[in-house]
Structures are given as C-alpha cells and as structure tokens.
Design a binder for these strands. Structure first.
Lengths: 242, 242
DNA sequence: CGGAATATTGACGGCTGTCAAACCTCGTGG
DNA sequence: CCACGAGGTTTGACAGCCGTCAATATTCCG
C-alpha cells in the first residue's frame, strides 16, 4: 500500500515498499544498500512549501515517499500552469539525470505534508551508469514522463472542460491504483478546485460547474480530500471522447 | 543567408553555411571533416512527405538544409497537433541523442521540397561524447527545444486566438531572422491556414478570421507563401499580452 | 468563536466552433 | 489557350462553451 500522508520512510531502504516501485527499483531489489548509502537525508515538509524552484540549479533529486505535491511553471502575468501531480512513490525532477547541467524547468510544491528521500544528483548519475538495466530504467522513466506531459499539454487545446476533468481523474485513479492507493472505488484526493483549474487551463468557477455536472449525472462523488468514482465506464468514455 | 526552398547542400561540409549554425557548430568550425565523414547521404524530398514516423525506432537524425517541415502527433480521433515548424538549418529529432533507444515521440513531414543531411544516430552520439563543448552544445539544444515546446503547449490553454497567432508569427520571424531568412520586414511563409490551425489548436475558419483582423488592423500583410509584418511593436504586444 | 480558505450559484457576454456556401488560385490536361 | 478540378481562402449566420463579476454558503483552523 502506498505511504499515507505524513508517514515516515523506514530507516533502511531494504524495508521500503515505495522504493521497490520507484525509479531505482532494479537496484534496490538486487542491492538495497546501494540506494541506502546514497540517501542523503529524509526531508519532512508541511503543506504548501515550494522545495524546488524553476530556473535554479538542480543538485538534488527526490523520491516522494508520502504525501502529494505538484510541479508547475508561471506565466509572465502571474498565472500558473500545473504540469503534473506527484503521488507517493513518484520521482521528482528525474529530468535532471538526463540534463544535469540545466536549471530546473519547473517548480515543485507540496500539496500536503510530505516526506522526501533526498539524493545528490551526482550520486544518482553514477548509479545510473553503473548497470545497463538501471540506466535503461531511469532513461525510460524520464522519457515516459516527458511524453505524458507533452501529451497532456497537447490535450489542453483540444478537449472540453468535462473531458479534461475526466481524463485527469482517470489518470490519477490509475496511478494511485498501481501503488495500492485506491480503496474500493474511492481514494484520498487532497486537491483543491483551484489546483484543478491551474492544471486544466480552466477557471475555478467552471471546474466547480463541471464537477457538479459529473456528480449530478451520477458519475462521481466527492467531498473535501476524497474522490469516488461511481461509473468508471462513462467517465472513461468522456475522458476519451470529449 | 539561409538555404532557400529546394537548394542542395554543398558537396563539402566545410563550405556549408547552414552547418556552421547547426547543432554541430563547434565541431564543424574546428574540423569540418568530422561532420563530413559522418554525413551518410543527402536526401531530397518533395512536399508533403512524412519521413519520420511517431512510434518507430530512430536510427537516423537529420539537419534540414533547405525547405520547411513540421513535427506533429495524432490524437486518437484523427486530429493532429503540430508541435513545431522546422526551418532551414534546424536539427530534426535531436531528442534521440538523449534517448537513443526510445521510439520517435512524433512524426515529421515536409511542407515544401526539402533537402536533408542524414546522419546515423550512432555516429552522432559518438561525436557528442568526443568533446565536452560539443556535448554541452547538443545537450543544451535538446533541452532548449524541449523547454520551448513545453512552453508553447502550456500557452495553448491560456491565450486567445489572436495572441497565439501573433506569438507564432513573432517566433517564426525571429528564428528566420537569426539565419538570414528575412528580407526587410517580410519572409517566405509556405504555411497553409490549416497548418496554423493544427499548430494553435484552432479551426481554419477562425485562423482566417484572426489573420483577417490582424490585416485589417494594419499589423500584417500576407498572401500565399509570403508574410509581412507591418507593425512589430503592436504584434509583439499582442503576442505577449493576449 | 471569528476569520480565512474553499465551494457554490446566478447573470451575462464574448470568444470560438460548426455548418454552409461562395470564391479564388494554381496546376493539369485537352 | 482554355476548361476544369482540387486545394485553399473568405464570408455569413448561429449556437454553445467558458470566462467574468459578484454574492452567498460552507468548511476549516487557530
């Protein structure tokens, strides 16, 4: 099961459920000590803390052990675009493994209390080069992430509000489900409507109307911090077609 | 001056104006032979040919010597998103240097007749690793391209039609100008309104109305294959603010 | 308990898509 | 040299999605 909000990582990486599904999965299974010795610290942050800043040099990368976060960029006029939501187990700023000398292409902010396992970028580049399997694994993850982000950005210009919202819900449920974060048909969802608006290129008012429509049509149920999907088939259909 | 539509590259890379401004600039200046021996062929294609296919393995990368092309992806419903326009001198599928084992993340199609200098991906990876300066140059170019694409995709959700069109025109004029492709305030522009629509997430009808508005306001002039910018200040202002 | 953050609802208007038709340009074949 | 057809551009009428502005309700948290 995914680590819940505020939970602390185990002392030894060998005992870490999250790590075995993380970017360094191949290594941690074969030799957890290799990860453990590279973990520089465990960082516990409260909600609403920006711990990676767009444009600044990147010297550390992270694994989000527990809690939620999100990556974002600012427009010149101050609005922000949320690029992706980061769930427990997700790597943070993985791109820097491929482009170690480039400044951060986005900022990252905690949405809830989070625990982060911190690694020096230098160490992890060394690890990546150590074995071909691990290198392929990291490079593959970086590529998939870039691909998914680019595809989502594409969608913004072409889908209706209800399609965008549905797509995001389907994606989040899938990603949470892969790591045991879904109970029955509901899951923890600490996302405000303002965050949805910033992620989907909508206003909070229209996000609210769209969620309301999905609720009135019996497709979802939700309250603060909780999302429940009542009709997966229809939600997926809307996500694909609208 | 940039190579014009249909022009053929010189026999020797040492004589190539385009190459000196291309991704392998540092090497070609110091030692043009290093590039020349890696050029596998010169490929001449007519307009409307797709020469790189999304999802297929990448074994060759290109420099677009003359003519225009564009990169794109398809949505499940058949619509397409143009990711970027490729101008004379631009590298094609540069990302593969960073992710050599990944399939192509997009397709590329010629807009006019084009001449392409073709290199084996393997050879260029070798070149990149040969010197630190060249490696940094290539990595930097790949990163900048990814950054620009991501930023443009972001914009699509947040800017009005006239803002998007203006931004694209400003960008194209800038990129063409950097390589001598602008005469006075006008330039060759072999882009159909349908392509603009696919790049900007609009319909052709609305692209037409938007261009018409810019023309009636005295900001641009255009006809088939030619674009002229009459009022740079206002165009830039619209591109930035709307 | 009080204030801040978040969610909800209503009224209104504009931007943009859709559908359709006409027009124009260019290359091609007769 | 003209006729023709395909591709591309332009214009009109209309509808609907979504933003804006504003007010109110609700929940959270100190």
């Amino acid at each position: 099961m995914a680590a819940s909000d505020g939970a602390k990582p185990p002392l030894l990486c060998a005992d870490c459920f999250v790590g075995q599904h993380a970017l360094y999965g191949p290594t941690i299974k074969a030799s957890p000590h290799e990860i453990y010795i590279r973990r520089r610290q465990i960082l516990n942050l409260s909600a609403q803390k920006t711990f990676l800043h767009e444009g600044e040099p990147v010297t550390q990368i992270f694994t989000l052990y527990s809690g939620w976060a999100f990556s974002f960029r600012h427009f010149t006029d101050g609005r922000r675009q949320i690029l992706s939501f980061l769930l427990p187990g997700d790597p943070v700023i993985l791109e820097s493994l491929s482009f170690p000398h480039r400044p951060a292409p986005y900022s990252v902010k905690s949405l809830t209390n989070v625990s982060l396992c911190v690694f020096a970028l230098r160490d992890m580049i060394g690890l990546a080069k150590a074995t071909e399997l691990q290198n392929e694994n990291l490079s593959s993850a970086a590529w998939k992430h870039a691909d998914a982000t680019s595809r989502r950005m594409m969608d913004l210009g072409h889908r209706s509000a209800i399609g965008r919202v549905s797509q995001l819900l389907v994606e989040i449920e899938r990603r949470l489900g892969e790591r045991g974060g879904v109970q029955g048909n509901q899951f923890y969802f600490p996302v405000r409507q303002e965050h949805l608006a910033d992620a989907l290129g909508l206003t909070t008012v229209y996000v609210n109307r769209t969620l309301d429509r999905l609720r009135k049509d019996g497709i979802i149920e939700f309250e603060r911090d909780r999302m429940q999907i009542m009709d997966h088939v229809t939600l997926r259909k809307i996500a694909d077609e609208e």
